[in-house]
Design a protein around this nucleic acid. Structure first.
Lengths: 233, 233
DNA sequence: CGGCTCCAGATCCTATAGGATATTGCGTAC
DNA sequence: GTACGCAATATCCTATAGGATCTGGAGCCG
């Protein structure tokens, strides 16, 4: 009867663990896609997922429905789900055009609005991922991508426009770029170059580090272009 | 085994109707929210929906999961789903700040890029809703809101950036604004402003198109604010 | 060789049962 | 009169089985 209180956001925030299986499945499958464990176009068999994850169909169906809404999978009626394709060249250009339109603006707004606490958070995030391990691994690159995502999201948050922030988040740009980078075994080469950069940085050699990073970015660009071209066929 | 073909976008476009019950439920519930049949904060009982719609839980759960991803409902673990709240004052301001950043830019891009076919579509959409009834009714306003949504979406489409378009769509701004108010009499002014935008786009004048869109959104915001304030009491 | 039918497999949808959790109401103690 | 604890109910979440429908390929016929 008297349940008209809408101040339940605070109560929800108080719950650390979600206790809902669907969310775990959602994150799991999202991780599988993000880590390129499943390639684009792969069919996601619901029955197989029930066996592999050891749970029933219901939470898996809910997760896949949400993932479809996110654009990460595609539902083909009466045929099942498939992992959606990676970025095409055109989508890549669109995505960066959009980012070039939103993020500089968000940064300027953040510069106008941020107080000392905000700046502290930004600094903390910047410092939160500085140690690149000697042996570059798959996990380390993923951590780097996660850090990058948190950083950009924080800028949007400090801009003070929640609508813009959500809108930007829903592009899943980091996730798509992450998938792109890890396609076709390119990750290993990228990680090797990362190691060169790290080595140069640890040696305290600015010129060498700059050169390594420059060559890494150029190589990365060179690696990405043919991927766009092959996917455009 | 050999199902690695990625050209499935064209195949999907060939299927007009999906034949999947979940989509019908999704549209149905979305319509219930959009028409304010269910008020914000209302609990969406799954068992009740199974009885009312005469179907089982599975498609309803998938629909609700997608609606949650859209931000239209909120899932409270072990308590159920609720219709999400209407816009707060702050969200209202954020939304229009975002629109003022995106849509004028989109209009200018549309003015630059649009060919004759695009311009024909724009004109057709503009002419598709011209008769504003003397006595504004719920139905007429709903038709106006649908037209307004198509118009703004079309501008985003003509801007040629699918990322920006999807990002804008996912704000569901028209849906939220529709829920915010259904008074009457405002349609005529909005249609006049749409016409100014179309004229500028057809002239291929980016600056003029952006300015027209900007003034339209600002005017729209000014029209909605007082209504919003009265509802916030 | 092309076109057709039939069958196996996969998927979607339904139905039902049981465990887990939150809400509600009542009774008791202070 | 108020606060606390406890049981009953309702709801959500999970699990499992089975029918209906569609896809894909093998095999047969013209």
């Amino acid at each position: 009867m008297t349940d008209a209180h809408l101040g339940l956001a605070g109560q929800l925030a108080r719950l650390p663990q979600r206790q809902v299986l669907s969310d775990d499945v959602y994150e799991t499958v999202k991780g599988l896609i993000m880590d390129s464990v499943v390639e684009p176009g792969t069919r996601l068999n619901i029955d197989a997922l029930t066996r592999e994850l050891g749970i029933s169909q219901t939470p898996i169906r809910e997760s896949l429905a949400r993932l479809e809404s996110d654009g990460l999978v595609i539902k083909e009626p009466l045929r099942g789900y498939r992992v959606s394709s990676r970025l095409t060249r055109e989508e890549f250009e669109d995505l960066f055009e959009y980012r070039l339109h939103i993020e500089p603006w968000a940064a300027s707004r953040a510069a106008e609005r941020s107080g000392s606490e905000d700046l502290a958070r930004l600094k903390a995030e910047m410092l939160s991922y500085t140690d690149v391990p000697d042996r570059p691994s798959y996990e380390s690159y993923r951590a780097m991508a996660a850090h990058d995502q948190r950083f950009h999201d924080l800028v949007l948050e400090l801009a003070g426009n929640e609508t813009a922030r959500l809108s930007f988040q829903r592009t899943h740009c980091h996730l798509h770029l992450f998938r792109l980078y890890y396609g076709g075994g390119i990750a290993t080469k990228a990680l090797r170059e990362h190691k060169v950069v790290v080595t140069a940085v640890r040696k305290g050699n600015p010129e060498e580090a700059a050169a390594a990073m420059r060559s890494h970015i150029e190589a990365s660009r060179a690696r990405l272009r043919p991927i766009f071209d092959t996917l455009s066929d």
